Simulated assay, not measured.
Amino acid sequence: MGKIHDKINDRLREFIEAQPVYFVATAPEQGGHVNVSPKGYPDTFAVLDDTTVAYLDLDGSGVETISHVRQNGRITIMFCAFSGPPNILRLYGTGRVLVPESPGFTELIKRFGPHPGVRSIIVVDCDRISDSCGFSVPFMSFDRDRPLLDEWAERKDVQQRRAYRAKNNRESVDGVPGLLPEETDPVTQRS
């Protein structure tokens, strides 16, 4: 049923590219709340090489992933087949946060579709790549992406997004530091 892979092969890459949603899980070093975030917009995820992936981190209501990854690096990304053959793919690894000032950010952002509200890019070096049956995952049909997050970001000017990030993205729900004060300025470039 389950299988561990030494790399993201062509079959797994095709599976990843076909999924309209993925889930990101992180946790603080000790105690605290485990966070699982659904991510849409398939053009926000990229397989960089056989063991490295990245996703575009857009404005959101919290900053759990950034906080946890900066604290301990632990991250798991999960894809589920809601159509076609059953499958669950988990990418376990060590993440790092690239903000606009980080080396490599400007080049890496070109790998993603156009979205406003870019906070960072999360890069994951996978140390375990495994899939399993997914026999109990229901069939669900995909209608379309919700444009609401992009629309929300488009309605905010730079000052409004800066204020939002300062209020909501400086620390996790458990008080783990998230965005630094100098990192709350919205990216002036779109992805």
Results as ranks from 00 to 15, higher is better:
1 M>E: 11
2 G>Q: 10
3 K>I: 07
5 H>Q: 01
5 H>A: 04
6 D>A: 06
12 L>Q: 03
13 R>H: 11
15 F>Y: 10
15 F>A: 10
17 E>N: 15
19 Q>T: 06
23 F>M: 13
24 V>Q: 12
25 A>R: 01
26 T>Q: 10
27 A>S: 14
29 E>K: 15
30 Q>W: 01
31 G>N: 01
31 G>M: 05
31 G>W: 03
33 H>S: 13
37 S>T: 15
40 G>V: 06
41 Y>L: 12
44 T>A: 13
45 F>H: 03
45 F>W: 01
46 A>R: 13
47 V>D: 06
53 V>L: 05
54 A>C: 08
55 Y>F: 15
56 L>G: 04
57 D>F: 10
58 L>P: 09
59 D>Y: 09
61 S>G: 08
61 S>D: 13
62 G>P: 02
67 S>V: 09
67 S>D: 14
70 R>I: 04
71 Q>T: 04
73 G>V: 00
75 I>W: 01
77 I>K: 00
79 F>D: 02
79 F>V: 09
79 F>L: 10
79 F>Q: 02
79 F>K: 08
79 F>E: 01
80 C>P: 07
80 C>S: 11
81 A>V: 03
87 N>E: 12
92 Y>S: 02
92 Y>F: 13
93 G>I: 01
94 T>E: 12
96 R>N: 01
98 L>S: 07
99 V>S: 00
101 E>R: 12
101 E>P: 02
104 G>L: 14
106 T>G: 03
106 T>V: 07
108 L>E: 01
115 H>F: 05
116 P>C: 02
116 P>T: 10
117 G>F: 08
118 V>E: 09
122 I>Y: 03
123 V>P: 04
124 V>R: 01
127 D>A: 00
128 R>V: 07
128 R>L: 10
128 R>Q: 10
129 I>C: 07
132 S>T: 12
134 G>W: 08
138 P>S: 06
138 P>M: 07
141 S>R: 13
141 S>I: 04
141 S>W: 06
142 F>A: 11
144 R>I: 03
146 R>E: 06
147 P>R: 09
147 P>N: 05
150 D>G: 15
150 D>T: 08
152 W>D: 02
152 W>P: 02
156 K>I: 00
158 V>E: 15
160 Q>K: 10
163 A>T: 08
165 R>Q: 09
166 A>Q: 15
168 N>Q: 12
168 N>Y: 15
168 N>A: 14
170 R>T: 09
171 E>F: 05
172 S>M: 06
173 V>K: 14
174 D>F: 03
174 D>N: 03
175 G>Q: 06
178 G>Y: 12
180 L>C: 00
181 P>G: 13
181 P>V: 09
182 E>T: 08
184 T>D: 14
184 T>F: 00
184 T>M: 15
186 P>V: 08
187 V>H: 10
188 T>I: 14
191 S>P: 00
